[in-house]
Structures are given as structure tokens and as C-alpha cells.
């Protein structure tokens, strides 16, 4: 918005005291001062430059409220900017006009007095009044209409805004966000990339506990050994025989502290499956021990990086 410098420079002569505590006063009014209708808001600014140490008396700034039956001060606020040895007060004022004119006529915005205090005493500055031309909104004598509603003008249609660009941008950003979330989920191995590292021993331990808990017979023991065999195979990525144990433990060092137990396990497995002597196998590695062993392996597997 461009504002025309309408105001005037006031110098010491216009001030009530001889001290040059107020350097200048400038009133800025709207550039156009005609063609206003009822309800229009007019804004003006008053710039006052003062010496450092001179303080505006805020109470002297007009407070929002009715100024006349047709004029309301709707907004008034003060901005303060400090310079090297001066201080600038900018007082922004917004007036709303409620005068319903039948012809074009000038209306007056009243002036006011700003007061300042400094170490030298009080000073006041007169801000001048200014005026604008108001215009009528309707004809004075409209042609006769049948119904009262006919005098009403149609509402202004709401403006059409083309939102295609915004819509495209929204979708594009949404898609980008989705992709970003996808990448993040993949990175953090969250769902749906949550296929966690396979945990064969954990799974086997769960099944073994279930099997041995449910039945005490030899078949359950056999199945439990088988489940653990499959877990060893799955961990190694290939079938592991008893004589492959050292290589297996080298490849999976997190289990190497259970070497003794592994040996017992393979020994029992041999007894069970190849010597058909489950009794001897159970003497070497009881079902309880087998269960505990698989639990330990599962824990070691989870603890491994």
C-alpha cells in the first residue's frame, strides 16, 4: 500500500516549550481521499521523531472506540524504533466510517494531541485533523418495484480460485511423504519390512517346550531333537552333521560357549536316530536338559547382534 505524505513538518515553533525534544511529526493518510462508502476502513499513520530520553505518554494516543455517531476508531497501536540519538514513534490508526451519505460530501477525521515527557518536563504535539469525501451507495429515488425484495442487489459471487496446482502439490507431497515413510520403515525394519532376522532357535525352543510339556513319551523326545536339528540347519544354512560341529561353531561364534552341550546333543541324536537307543540318549541328555539347552540357544541367538 502506498501512502502519500500528507502531513507537515512541525518544528520547535509549534511546540509548547522551546526545547527541541520533538524533532518532527508526520501524518500519513490514504493516497485516495474520495469515493468511500459506508463501512469502509481508512488507515492513517502518525510518525513522531523525538530526542532520546523523551517518552510518549501512551494515554494521549486515542484509544479504540466511538469518536462520533458515524465514526469508530477500530484499531490503534504504537510502534517504537530507537535510533542513535532519536526515537521514532509510529502510531497506526484505523477508522471505520458508518456515515450513510445521500450525496458526496467531505467528512472530517478529528485531530488529537500527543503528549511527551522528558527530563525537561512535558511536551505536547498537535496532530492535525484531515478529511475525505464520502460517496452515496444507492440512488436517492429508485424506480418503483413490485416487491421490497426487488430492491435488493444480488450478492457478489464468491471468487473462483483455481486450486489445481495446490491439489497437485498436495498429492505430490503426500506421495513423497509416503515414500519417505517407506524408506524409514525399511531402514528401521518396521512393518511391512518387519521380516526380522530369522530366529530358528527361538522358534525351536518354543516348539520343544510345547512338545516336551505336552507329552513325556519317547516320540516327543525324538521330535524335540528333530526340531533342534532343523534349527541348527537353518542357522548354518545347510545340513549340519555331528562332525561338522566345529565349523558350525566357527561360523556362529555366539553359540561356541555351548560346545559341550552341542556335543551331548549330537551324541543323543546319534543314539536316538541311528542306534535306536532312546533310553541311552535320554540318559545323556534328559528332556529337561534338552529344553533348557534350547532355551539358552534361543537367548544366545537373540542376544547376538
Amino acid at each position: 500500500m502506498r501512502w502519500a505524505a500528507f502531513g507537515l513538518m512541525l518544528f520547535a515553533g509549534t511546540l509548547t516549550t522551546a526545547d527541541a525534544q520533538v524533532r518532527s511529526v508526520k501524518l500519513v493518510t490514504p493516497e485516495r481521499l474520495f469515493g468511500y462508502f459506508v463501512g469502509d476502513v481508512l488507515r492513517s499513520e502518525v510518525d513522531v521523531a523525538v530526542d532520546k530520553g523523551t517518552v510518549l505518554n501512551r494515554a494521549s494516543v486515542p484509544a479504540p472506540g466511538d469518536l462520533d455517531y458515524w465514526l469508530e476508531l477500530v484499531d490503534s497501536h504504537v510502534e517504537e524504533t530507537a535510533g542513535d540519538d532519536t526515537k521514532l514513534y509510529r502510531i497506526s490508526l484505523a477508522y471505520q466510517n458508518f456515515y450513510l451519505a445521500l450525496d458526496a460530501r467531505p467528512l472530517n477525521i478529528p485531530g488529537f494531541t500527543l503528549s511527551f515527557t522528558s527530563s525537561h518536563g512535558a511536551t505536547s504535539v498537535q496532530v492535525p485533523a484531515w478529511s475525505f469525501l464520502i460517496s452515496p451507495l444507492r440512488e436517492i429515488l429508485p424506480a418503483a418495484k413490485a416487491a421490497g425484495a426487488d430492491y435488493m442487489q444480488p450478492d457478489v459471487k464468491p471468487p473462483y480460485y483455481n486450486l489445481l496446482r495446490e491439489r497437485i502439490a498436495t498429492f505430490a507431497l503426500f506421495a513423497a511423504a509416503l515414500i519417505a515413510f517407506g524408506i524409514l520403515a525399511y531402514h528401521l525394519a518396521l512393518w511391512p519390512f518387519g521380516a526380522r532376522a530369522k530366529r530358528p532357535f527361538t522358534e525351536a525352543a518354543r516348539r520343544i517346550r510345547k512338545m516336551l510339556g505336552a507329552r513325556e513319551d519317547e516320540l516327543a523326545y525324538r521330535d524335540a531333537l528333530l526340531a533342534l536339528h532343523r534349527a541348527v540347519d537353518a542357522t548354518a544354512g545347510h545340513v549340519v552333521f555331528a562332525e561338522d560341529l566345529p565349523q558350525f561353531l566357527d561360523a556362529a561364534p555366539m553359540f561356541s560357549r555351548w560346545k559341550e552341550e552341542f556335543n551331548l546333543f549330537f551324541q543323543s541324536s546319534r543314539q536316538t536316530f541311528f542306534a535306536d537307543n532312546i533310553a541311552a540318549a535320554r540318559a545323556d541328555l534328559s528332556p529337561d536338559e534338552l529344553c533348557r539347552f534350547s532355551d539358552r540357544l534361543a537367548a544366545a541367538e537373540r542376544a547376538a547382534p
Partner: peptide
């Protein structure tokens, strides 16, 4: 084959 066929 030895890597794939489970035993026992």
C-alpha cells in the same frame, strides 16, 4: 544335496 537333504 548334502546341504539340502535334512538328517536325521
Amino acid at each position: 544335496i548334502f546341504a539340502a537333504v535334512p538328517s536325521p
